[in-house]
Design a protein around this nucleic acid. Structure first.
Lengths: 226, 226
DNA sequence: GGAGGACCGTACACCGGTGTATGGAACCGG
DNA sequence: CCGGTTCCATACACCGGTGTACGGTCCTCC
């Protein structure tokens, strides 16, 4: 269900064996792959769930897949969480904190309203801790575990954007419309990045075309620098 | 796996029974629910697959779910398709034709470049045959069955948008950047609609706020009417 | 240094989905 | 009327994921 990394899983020796204590020479890249390994925390499982969520959607957040990713078994999981839904909501709450509070707090430290808005848009598009997470969560808006978190995140972000536009002198109604448009452009930008990174280099993470496209993005939505 | 309609499935009498020929008094709304029913076509299955795809992603496109939705059994499915992947690709090809060719063809009938661009953006956001389909497909960009179709659709749409902007006098590079931004705004707009229709009434299908937000959307991305 | 708790592996029953094999009803043309 | 084709239902084997029960291994604290 991950379909992003077909090869490494296909040629595991013989079920990876119970090689828990020991070198554990598997092909994983997220773990130290050496020594008895530190005990797993609920956040470890939640982070792995976010990764799986970004790749294959809600259905890909399976306990077995997370356990494989972390080099553990489901026995470990059921000590930290009562069931599958628990890790899903934990992951979404983790995302809610990281993807909303931190970006907004960073922008709020900028006093000048125009620079604040430009910085917000720039940072939102630039930093992307878990590639593909935003589109994946948005695609499962109807899921009972996703819906409440997604609603809170969406309203908070749009409200903050609207306050930024209002700080630039727009009327409340206009600021609101500008905020919705800017947020839509942000969502679509993240969509395009992991949808067609090869065909739309404008939304990629680095390079000249990306820099100029990003400048156009910010200039159009937040106005020129000064 | 549909989680959009929890109630109707929960209280089925006793597995719905083999009530095929006959009144078949189930709660479905898509079928005539009367008489022996016309024979199913591959497109019927593909349409049901698009619906499931829009609601629960690729994982929700299960043969059993489609059969339940169509009031048939899997025996019917395996006469029309060799396996599950076949109906998935068939559904995606159906989407590729409907969601790209028709909208572009409608816009190309408009001679005036500015009106053409405005009409294109307006129509793209207004007509939404299968709500939630676009975000759901975009979220599974890494899936082997989705990737090629999604790449073609994305490049075709952006290229057409770029030609529209070029027709307005923009240089090729600027037209390209404007096209990417406009397409990102479109994608995010569709995201927002089915993500938080209650909290973001601007992206809803009707109403005063929606109309004014849509006007702002078109004016900002395509320039004023004249 | 021994008891208890934290943490994890293993085994089992269960469920839903896939694919296949096969039978049967309806609808033709000869 | 009858054989063949079309379309669909049923039954079965199989697989992957979920929960649960239970056993084992550390680590800690008195």
């Amino acid at each position: 269900m991950v379909y992003g990394t077909p090869a490494p899983d296909a040629l595991d020796p013989a079920k990876t064996g119970p090689a828990n204590t020991g070198p554990a020479a598997d092909g994983r890249t997220d773990r130290v792959a050496d020594m008895p390994r530190q005990a797993l925390t609920p956040d470890d499982w939640a982070m792995a769930a976010l990764d799986a969520l970004a790749r294959g959607g809600v259905a890909a957040v399976s306990i077995e897949a997370l356990a494989r990713e972390l080099g553990a078994t489901r026995g470990s999981f059921y000590w930290h969480f009562p069931n599958r839904d628990a890790v899903l909501t934990a992951a979404l709450h983790l995302w809610e904190r990281r993807a909303t509070d931190e970006i907004i707090a960073a922008a709020e430290r900028e006093p000048d309203p125009r620079r604040r808005l430009r910085r917000l848009l720039h940072d939102a598009v630039t930093v992307d801790p878990v590639p593909g997470l935003e589109p994946s969560i948005a695609a499962h808006a109807g899921h009972p575990a996703v819906a409440p978190v997604l609603r809170r995140v969406t309203t908070r972000r749009i409200d903050f954007l609207a306050r930024c536009y209002a700080g630039l002198g727009a009327t409340p109604a206009l600021a609101r419309r500008q905020a919705v448009l800017a947020y839509a452009a942000y969502l679509g930008w993240m969509d395009l990045r992991h949808t067609a990174e090869a065909d739309v280099p404008e939304t990629a993470e680095g390079g000249r075309v990306a820099a100029r496209a990003l400048a156009h993005f910010v200039d159009t939505l937040a106005g020129p620098a000064d």
